[in-house]
Structures are given as C-alpha cells and as structure tokens.
Design a protein around this nucleic acid. Structure first.
Lengths: 157, 157
DNA sequence: GTCGATAATCTCGATCGTCGAGATGTTACT
DNA sequence: AGTAACATCTCGACGATCGAGATTATCGAC
C-alpha cells in the first residue's frame, strides 16, 4: 500500500501541473481578447495588484515585477498607454518618478475576466466544509513553499 | 460567519494564483539555466510527456500542443536540434511525417530539474493522511474543471 | 548656490521569435 | 496517371526585448 500512497501523491503533483497549464491558458485568452501579449498581461496584473494595495507602481518597480530592462519597460508602457489601459502620471513630490495608473476601462475588463473566474471558483467551493478547506489551504501553502524554494534555485533534501 | 467563509474561499483562489506564479518561475529558471526561451521549455515538456505515454510526437502535433504555426515549429525544432536536445526522425511508414525524439542528455536534465521538484512535493505530502489528500484531489479536480471552462471561453453562471 | 554623484527614464540600433504566404515533397483516392 | 489533401520547410517581414548611452531630475557636500 505504500506504493499506492506514493503514486497518489505523484498524481496530485501532476494535477497541480495540469491546473497550472489551464490557468496560463486563461491568461492567454485574456491577452488574445484584448490584443495584448503575455508580458502586457503580467504588467497589468502587477499594476492592478499594486493598486489594490493602495500603491501606485512606478515604471522602475514595474520593470522589477515583470523582470524587464528599462528599455523594454518604456516600450511596454508605450503600448499599454496607446490603447488606453494605463496613464503616465508624474509624481509631484519626486519629479523623476513616473507613476502608472490603470484606466477604469482596463480595470473593469480585468475584473470581468479574472473576477468572473474568481467568482466561479468560490462557487465551486460551496460544497466543501470549513475543515476541508483548511486542509486544502494548508496543502496549498506547503506546496507553494516547496515550489518557491525551487524557483529560487534552493534545492532541497 | 458567512462573510468569513466567503473570504476564506477567495483567499484560496489567491493562493492558487500565487502558486501559479511560482510554478511559472520554476519553468523560467529551467529555461535560463539551459539557454532556452519559454516556448522551447513548453515544447520539451510536451515531447517528454508524449514520450512518457510511449508516443513519438511529430512536428505537427507539437505545433498544436504549443499553439504555433508550422513556420515557427520549424524554427523551434531547429533551435532544439542545434543544441542537441531533440533529433528529427523521418517516419518510415509516412515519409511526410517528422518524428521528434529527445536526447538522453535533455531527458536527464529535465528529470533532474522537474523530477527533483516532484520528489520534494511528494515528500511535503508525507504528513497528510489519505483522507486529507482525497479532499485535496477532489478540490484540485473541481478547480481545474472551472478553470478549464474559462480558458475555453465558456463562462459560467 | 554650485558641482559631482545618484536615480529614473528614454532613445537608438541590433538580435531573435513568430507569423503569413508560398514552395516542396509525400500519400491517398479514383 | 492525375489530382487533391497533407506535412514540413523556406523566405521576407514584423514586433518584443535587450545593451549601451543620452537625458532629465534630485540630493548632499562644500
């Protein structure tokens, strides 16, 4: 039975990868619908997340978040600004900085797409008890910790 | 308490996204280490998965798997063949087809990187009971189903 | 205040991945 | 044989990204 148990755990790892693929496909679909590429979407998500935390992302910070050089960030922001998804806003306090604000239209589009997914996910969790969801949460946190270590190159065991 | 329950479920959705980001980072790291781009990695994974199922992927099938046109597939396979990760093998039965076989070196590199992750993930599941993992599996399958629907544009409710 | 150091952003030229259109070689059907 | 369907490859163009260097703004020392 130890074999069965190990196999069950491996299957969960595969399930996780399958989920990852599908989740990427959701992002790809959003990109296609709005004529954006993958980097643009990641940038919008980063700006959106920052906005949710009450911060206005600067161009430099955005570059760190999506791992692009300054030249590429300029081009990226140019693209997003041209189609009206973000605005450049000079920081009056430190006039070197350029803040990025999402337009209401972009915010609404993002909320419709990803918010709709979040809504359906929550709905699909209706049938679970609080105790079961606690188990899931603990498992997700454990797996994320392991994956995060690997993504930074700190192999384990 | 209904508020708390709803928030807990939303947090799980966010955890899932966080996990997705970290998992993508693992793939990115593998790409960096081997001088590949994201598409190349996706292609190698697709070939590897097919090999695991005992099938030899053709160039055309690979194009469908990674969603590229034939011209891009040719360039992709050229890149992978140049660095010795795959071989082109004409199908003797249907000589229009070009089969793709991974080199042992590439197979080993992939196994070391992603197999190591799988190993650590399984190890991190040691502390869970079979019953708990059943809950996790059910949850993962439910979430994947919802996400897959969204990735194909079939919105729900 | 003015000068050098620092920081954030932008411009320019080059490289590389992807695509569309069309060419080439292969198989299946009649 | 002749033709349609198929799989892959070649070619030219476009666009995203990068590295190096220029530009503009700020801060601290004197």
């Amino acid at each position: 039975m130890a074999d069965n148990a190990a196999r069950a755990r491996q299957e969960l790892a595969l399930l996780l990868r399958r989920l990852n693929v599908e989740l990427d496909a959701v992002g790809q679909r959003f990109a296609d619908r709005h004529g954006l590429n993958r980097t643009d979407v990641r940038a919008l998500v980063a700006i959106m997340d920052a906005a949710r935390r009450g911060e206005a992302l600067t161009a430099g910070r955005l570059g760190e978040a999506v791992d692009l050089r300054s030249a590429s960030v300029t081009a990226l922001v140019d693209r997003l600004e041209k189609v009206g998804h973000v605005r450049r806003v000079r920081d009056p306090g430190d006039r070197r900085r350029v803040g990025l604000e999402m337009s209401d239209a972009a915010m609404a589009a993002g909320a419709e797409h990803f918010g709709g997914l979040a809504h359906d996910l929550v709905a699909a969790m209706e049938g679970y008890t609080d105790g079961e969801l606690d188990v899931v949460r603990r498992w997700l946190e454990d797996m994320t910790a392991v994956i995060a270590r690997h993504s930074r190159g700190e192999a384990e065991s």
